[in-house]
């Protein structure tokens, strides 16, 4: 046995040493300006408040809500299951831990859309995949989900359907007013990411 095994061992070591000696390549994928422009022009980076509410209610295991406001505002009010990554912490290792999970649908939100858009641009630039913005932010959320206005008679049928869905969601989230006691920060909802959603995403879990 010995000669054969010795030879195989030597081959293994050569391969290993060879890999150490190969010149380093950088695989981190910072996007160039052109790619950025394309990404910005693509409207699919937005999710409506209705879509986000739906995902929360259905306990979508892939949803990861990211609150980019400062910690004080976050502790005052946040969306269920959200994690707080203020804009200035977005490039830290702690943030990378959340953002680098390819399989999760990562949704940024702030009060309006400005900070969340900045967060989105940054994370896009860093090459993170599957990142979105909640359109209109929390203002829109309160307007549409927490305090939906009833459509006037004569408005199209779909307006009424949307209203019904929103009313249901409103009840789910504590109804009527912004409920400051909804569950706070903490680990994101997890579960085997087997749901297929969106385009091109990393593969799902092992066993």
């Amino acid at each position: 046995m010995n000669l054969r095994y010795t030879l195989l061992s030597i081959i293994l070591l050569i391969l290993a040493f060879g890999f150490v000696l190969l010149p380093k390549k950088d695989f981190s994928k910072d996007l160039g300006a052109e790619d950025m422009l394309l990404a910005v022009l693509d409207d699919s980076r937005f999710l409506s408040t209705d879509e986000v509410a739906n995902m929360i209610i259905n306990q979508d295991p892939n949803l990861l809500l990211i609150d980019v406001r400062i910690a004080d505002q976050f502790s005052e009010f946040n969306l269920r299951g959200a994690v707080n990554l203020p804009l200035d912490s977005l490039l830290t290792e702690g943030a990378d831990m959340y953002l680098s999970q390819t399989a999760k649908t990562k949704v940024f939100y702030s009060n309006g859309s400005i900070y969340s858009s900045q967060a989105w641009l940054l994370s896009k630039r860093k090459g993170y995949k599957n990142v979105f913005i909640m359109r209109g932010g929390l203002n829109q959320w309160i307007e549409t989900i927490m305090q939906p206005t009833e459509p006037k008679p004569g408005e199209p049928q779909t307006a009424f359907q949307t209203y019904e869905a929103r009313k249901g969601a409103s009840q789910f989230f504590g109804g009527g007013s912004a409920d400051a006691s909804s569950s706070g920060a903490g680990a994101p909802k997890s579960g085997s990411p087997t749901l297929k959603k969106g385009k091109k995403k990393g593969a799902a879990g092992g066993c």
């Binding site: 293994l12 391969l15 040493f17 150490v20 990378d96 831990m97 903490g186 680990a187």
Partner: peptide
């Protein structure tokens, strides 16, 4: 759900290059 640390790779956790880790692993295996 406790102690979530992301999805790190072991050579990053140890602070060495991937090639060096693979070399170490090969030697350990042999």
């Amino acid at each position: 759900l406790d102690n979530f640390l992301g999805a790190p790779l072991v050579f990053d956790s140890l602070g060495i290059s991937n090639a060096l880790f693979i070399l170490g692993l090969s030697i350990a295996a042999l």
